[in-house]
Amino acid sequence: MHNDPKNRREFLKACAAAGAAGVWVLLIPRPGAAQRVHHIDPSLQVPDWMDHYYAYVIDLNKCIGCGNCVRACKRENKVHEKFFRTWVERYQITDEDHVYVESPNGGHDGFSGNVAHGKVTRSFFVPKMCNHCRNTPCTQVCPVHASYQTPEGVILVDKKRCIGCAYCVQACPYGSRFIDPRTHTADKCTWCYHRITKGLLPACVTVCPTNTRRFGDLKDEDDQIRELIHNARSSVLKPDLNTEPFCFYIGFDRAIR
């Protein structure tokens, strides 16, 4: 056996590095069986979430930009006054095909005046929020697993684990996340998870005066939302990103981005 001290030192160094790596792997929490939702251990007391997969539909033909949804969301979720979990944008498109987009105070106080220069040929409102994607860029980049997807398809943020690194804020292609200055953690729309799990509708849907916002369960065969999504030529924001959003838009315009 060759007994070269230099080689032995190298060997011990490699052992130490491997050991440290092992500790690091050990520290990373392993996902439980339920993450692969089709293989849940039947002995676990699983909530009724396997019976639901939620979706949200926004009918752009109906939105009047009143801002009720923004106000309701703020009230229901105690959102920071300078940030929004949901907001409304107004699109104005001129005859020269210039697109003007505005969202004064997130649409909280409604809209007034005309920001477009030139003759406006099309004008409409676009409510926006977290799209609760199936392929979520935001949860994938979270280094501490504070951001995650429930089996019902809702993306939540565990504020007790969030370290406020804002990776998810940068990763979200829809700009629906922000760092709450009060808690220094990420915040976003939860589709009012505390309401929908009690059989209620999200606050924004509840107060919408024109039924622009609809919410439903795709696993419920009688739910109108299934028909809306499949028969009403719905679209999603930025489909090219392959994030598979579960927030669908009816009456989509090519100018929307």
Partner: peptide, 9 residues
């Protein structure tokens, strides 16, 4: 952590 998935149950 890990009861339902890679998050705090």
């Amino acid at each position: 952590f890990g009861k339902w998935g890679a998050y705090r149950a």
